[in-house]
């Protein structure tokens, strides 16, 4: 390959060991992301999308066993010793969270929190770190940044807090940014501002972004590629255009049909019948089969393998070929 991938995830599996039995929240996720590319992991709550991000950061608790490889800049994050891992987190690999109120420490000001991270990673003086923090707040378009630097998280609005969170995540120029539903907790008008800001920053800084959301509209807005996740597995990956126009997996279709975006005026919004399976008691065959209209005997008994349709385009369904025929 001419250009090395910014992130290369191979067979990432996160198992939670519990008394009631093991639970595979992520089951062999494999993908790679070029520099400057934005991928969205799309899925319902409980599909394992947030766990994927946390597993990539090595943030899961001890009772979770994580296998696979997460290569960032050629190094496997999961095999780094603690000190190097701490250096990588917030350095080349950074993360923004869903709830900025909860993710910022309530007893320190925004400025202190950003400066602390910079000092920790780059060892520069606190005063110059503070200057950097100011520049960062200006960069994420927080009005009267110098004053906001001295604000506590509770003194800011939701959108402003998320901007501050983004500034914190970008403090040390990460090459890969993981965003865990960063717009879900915000109201719609603020959501779009934050999305636009993220896209602008991503293009300017040439970051690779892995964006997790359950919102098809948000996914379409921000990403180059989409990975649809169901019950801990990627059921379909492809470019935004492919997935939005010609979804191949019945689940992707259902997801698109059940959003206002996909449902045209005068058409009934369709829902996917049933609910996602419990991760500790997955069906024997395809995890989606109990809810799938196309499911047959084969789907109920065997787990479909990935069908590679092109570079970065896979689908995990026995009926994908017939579905493709229909689409064409």
């Amino acid at each position: 390959m001419a250009t090395e991938a910014a992130v290369d995830v191979r067979n990432l599996t996160a198992m939670f060991r519990r008394r009631e039995g093991d639970m595979a929240a992520v089951n062999g996720a494999t993908f790679s992301l070029a520099r400057g590319e934005v991928m969205t992991i799309l899925g319902e709550s409980g599909s394992g999308k947030s766990v994927t991000l946390k597993a990539m950061m090595g943030l899961l608790p001890d009772y979770a066993s994580i296998t696979g490889e997460v290569r960032v800049a050629g190094r496997d994050i999961l095999k780094l010793p603690p000190a190097a891992l701490a250096k990588a987190r917030g350095g080349e690999l950074s993360m923004i969270f869903q709830e900025p109120m909860a993710a910022l420490d309530p007893v320190y000001t925004i400025g202190e929190q950003i400066a602390e991270t910079i000092v920790k990673h780059e060892g520069i003086t606190y005063a110059s770190a503070m200057q950097r923090a100011l520049a960062l707040l200006e960069r994420v378009a927080i009005p009267s940044a110098a004053r906001r630097l001295k604000n506590y998280p509770h003194e800011m609005s939701g959108g402003m807090r998320q901007r501050a969170m983004i500034a914190l995540a970008l403090a040390c120029n990460p090459t890969v940014l993981l965003a865990d539903e960063p717009t879900t907790a915000l109201d719609v008008t603020v959501q779009i501002q934050i999305l636009l800001l993220l896209r602008e920053l991503q293009q300017e800084l040439g970051m690779s972004v892995i964006f997790v959301t359950h919102d098809v509209g948000v996914a379409a807005e921000i990403s180059d590629r989409i990975a649809v996740m169901y019950a801990g597995r990627f059921v379909e990956t492809g470019t935004v255009r492919e997935i939005m126009r010609h979804p191949k997996h019945p689940y992707s279709k259902g997801l698109l049909n059940s959003t206002v975006l996909g449902g045209l005026r005068g058409r009934r919004l369709e829902t996917i019948p049933g609910s996602p399976p419990s991760l500790s008691a997955l069906p024997r065959g395809c995890a989606f089969s109990p809810r799938c209209a196309q499911a047959d005997v084969r789907c109920l008994t065997t787990q479909p393998d990935e069908t590679v349709l092109g570079p970065g385009t896979i689908v995990r369904c026995f009926h994908a070929n017939t579905a493709m025929a229909e689409a064409i």
Binding site: L59, A86, G90, M95, P106, E116
Partner: peptide, 21 residues
Amino acid sequence: LDFVEAARASGTTTSQIIRHH
């Protein structure tokens, strides 16, 4: 709380988290 995880995600070590946060 999330900020402990967020602190870890920005590269804070366990001893720093205990002392600082």
